[in-house]
């Protein structure tokens, strides 16, 4: 019986680890999904917006440490808000300067945003250096909660999870309870008709892009509690994030959540039994198989067209 309880403990901790990955993935994918779903823009630079959030948190952490150390326990909340604002603002400018000029050429946005991602990575490297940096998370985020002798749940993971639930709930509220959300959903379904009922789709696009990038920024702030930040921190996540969006079905937020969960858990649990790359192979083959059977993704709405 000894080995069974040990196995259970490992499975639980590994599962929780998967939940942390799920949270960062989900925060990234939510932004990407609404941008892709609404505007049809494949934003290859989405990972860099995560990096922006992470560096913003790092900067604030350093500033707080040098200028007002007494803020140390609380600064993280400001860091999250600031990451959202900074990443959102950069997203707003990028949409205005670049994306809005490329709406008629969807494939070119792919190239353009990929170029943008390279430019941004190099900018990070020039400004912050190639070495990885880490923000100082506040005391109360360190350590772990001991559930039983064998099971320990890290606090930062719990915090990230809470943050993800809050953000997801917030996005749902915005999409389904506000006028902006109504306009976004209308634009997703029929852009031309949305204009013809008086919706300024350009304004909606800019807001959506900024919001998506802002959420990626929050993911970046959350990311600093899990790993250290380098210039390419975000681009490591971008492939997984795309996988999540495609697997979930581009227009469905529930699908995004379910697929982020499925992918993160498969990856994390199988990593324990085989090497990391074999775990990836397993995840990818499962995704490919399911996409072969359901090309429209896990969830897609059933209505007459």
């Amino acid at each position: 019986m000894e080995w069974l309880s040990e196995f259970g403990a490992i499975a639980a901790m590994q599962g929780f680890n998967g939940l942390s990955v799920f949270c960062v993935l989900l925060l990234m994918a939510l932004g990407l999904a609404i941008i892709f779903g609404q505007m049809g823009v494949i934003n290859m630079a989405h990972g860099e917006f995560l990096t922006i959030g992470a560096y913003t948190t790092y900067l604030l952490s350093t500033l707080v440490q040098t200028w007002c150390p007494w803020m140390q326990p609380y600064y993280f909340f400001f860091a999250i808000a600031l990451s959202f604002v900074v990443a959102g603002a950069v997203g707003w400018v990028v949409e205005w300067v670049m994306i809005s000029r490329l709406y008629h050429r969807p494939l070119d946005t792919l190239l353009a945003t990929w170029g943008l991602s390279l430019v941004m990575q190099q900018a990070f490297r020039s400004i912050f250096g190639a070495r990885e940096v880490s923000a100082n998370p506040p005391e109360w985020l360190m350590g772990a909660v001991k559930l039983t002798d064998a099971i320990e749940i890290p606090r930062n993971g719990l915090f990230v999870m809470g943050l993800t639930v809050l953000m997801t709930g917030g996005i749902f509220l915005m999409l389904y309870r506000t006028r902006w959300g109504l306009h976004v959903r209308a634009t997703v379904q029929n852009r031309i008709m949305s204009r013809a009922v008086g919706i300024n789709t350009r304004k909606v696009d800019r807001m959506t892009f900024a919001l998506g990038c802002g959420v990626a920024g929050v993911a970046g702030a959350a990311f600093t509690t899990i790993g250290s930040t380098g210039p390419t921190a975000g681009s490591l996540y971008i492939v997984d994030t795309f996988l999540v969006v495609v697997f979930g079905g581009a227009a469905s937020l529930f699908g995004t959540i379910a697929s982020a969960f499925a992918i993160a858990q498969t990856q994390s649990l199988s990593e324990f039994f085989m090497s990391g790359s074999m775990a990836r192979v397993l995840t990818l083959s499962a995704v490919i198989l399911i996409l072969l059977m359901r090309p429209q993704g896990l969830f897609s709405s059933k209505v007459r067209k």
Binding site: L182, R185, A186, Q189, N190, I192, M193, R195, A196, V197, G198, I199, N200, T201, S301, V303, R304, K305
Partner: peptide, 23 residues
């Protein structure tokens, strides 16, 4: 632009209705 014309008082019911199906 189209949406400004709507604000000015034009409304359009297109061929094939074009309602938003999943709303």
């Amino acid at each position: 632009e189209t949406h400004n014309r709507v604000t000015e008082g034009m409304a359009y019911v297109p061929q094939g209705r074009m309602i938003f199906p999943s709303m």
